[in-house]
């Protein structure tokens, strides 16, 4: 009887050992999969996130954790709001993919999309971080910027320069300044259109570079305020405002006035003395033949 028992036992042991071996292989495979998961998407589960994970998986009472995590998320939302305001850039999405992760070096692919005021952008780049003693050295490579530059002619040469020099910070600093200057222009144009609706019109919309001034009784004579925002290859943003005139030849022949032919130059001196808003307004006043100045 004793012998029979030990025989049964060794049978059990064999079965169990096989089962264990099988389970070990399964666990190892799952662990590899999990590691890949962590590599693929930067779900670095630490602290509260790790806790939350175990609650989700462990079917434990999650109420408490939910509170902790919602508080944590709230804090992050707050941080993001502050950061968005400070940087003047709203980000919609950021996806990362780890391409290489060895002891000292981490290479990640980033795809970030968002907008700066009305300007929509998407940037892709590789970020490599190499640990050097206490600090890590971060480098950007393979920068690719996608923007609709169809109506931003002067932006494209800057863009290609930025891609070449992989100067991500310069790109965003310039984009922000460019967008701010465009907003200034829009605000000014809209202000004048509302204030002088009979004289001012914005044929290309309030975000375009052109404002036309035209007295209702002088349909042949049109003045254009051409306000462009120039971007140099170095990323220098400068508004350029010009006054252009369209006055019939005949009128010019009949009234060869200095005021009209020299209008463009005169406007430049006005700009220097009064600044853009006041200079444009004084031209508007002149066109509207206003008596109340």
């Amino acid at each position: 009887m004793m012998e029979k028992m030990s025989e049964e036992n060794s049978e059990d042991v064999r079965v169990l050992e096989a089962q264990i071996e099988h389970l070990q292989a399964e666990v190892a495979a799952l662990q590899r999969q999990q590691q890949d998961n962590h590599k693929d998407i930067t779900f670095h589960l630490r602290g509260h996130m790790q806790d939350a994970m175990s609650y989700v998986c462990g079917q434990k009472q999650a109420g408490e954790k939910e509170k902790v995590l919602s508080k944590l998320t709230e804090e992050l939302e707050e941080d993001l709001k502050l950061q968005t305001q400070m940087n003047g850039i709203s980000l919609n999405s950021c996806t990362t993919k780890t391409l290489q992760s060895s002891g000292r070096q981490l290479v990640q692919q980033f795809c970030v999309s968002g907008h700066c005021s009305e300007l929509v952008f998407q940037v892709e780049f590789l970020l490599s971080e190499v640990k050097k003693g206490q600090r890590s050295e971060r480098t950007i490579r393979d920068l690719n910027v996608v923007m609709d530059t169809s109506d931003l002619q002067n932006f494209s040469s800057f863009l290609s320069g930025v891609e070449e020099s992989t100067d991500l910070l310069l790109f965003f600093r310039t984009l922000r300044t460019f967008s701010d200057r465009c907003d200034d222009r829009r605000r000014t144009f809209q202000h004048f259109q509302e204030k002088y609706p009979s004289v001012v019109s914005l044929p290309g919309g309030c975000r375009s570079a052109v404002m036309t001034l035209n007295h209702p009784e002088l349909s042949g004579c049109v003045l254009f305020v051409h306000w462009s925002v120039e971007v140099s290859r170095e990323g220098r943003v400068t508004p350029k405002i010009e006054l252009l005139t369209k006055i019939p030849e005949k009128a010019l022949q009949l009234f060869p006035s200095q005021a009209v032919s020299g209008a463009a130059e005169a406007f430049q001196s006005l700009l220097r003395i009064l600044g853009p808003e006041a200079a444009v307004e004084s031209v508007i006043m002149a066109v509207s033949l206003s008596q109340d100045t």
């Binding site: 930067t42 992050l76 950061q83 940087n87 950021c94 970030v112 910070l169 600093r173």
Partner: peptide, 17 residues
């Protein structure tokens, strides 16, 4: 949470401030 973390990380890299 993961999305916010990534967005903040992106701000850190591209924003300058």
């Amino acid at each position: 949470h993961t999305q916010l973390k990534d967005l903040l990380h992106a701000h850190d890299i591209i924003g300058g401030y």
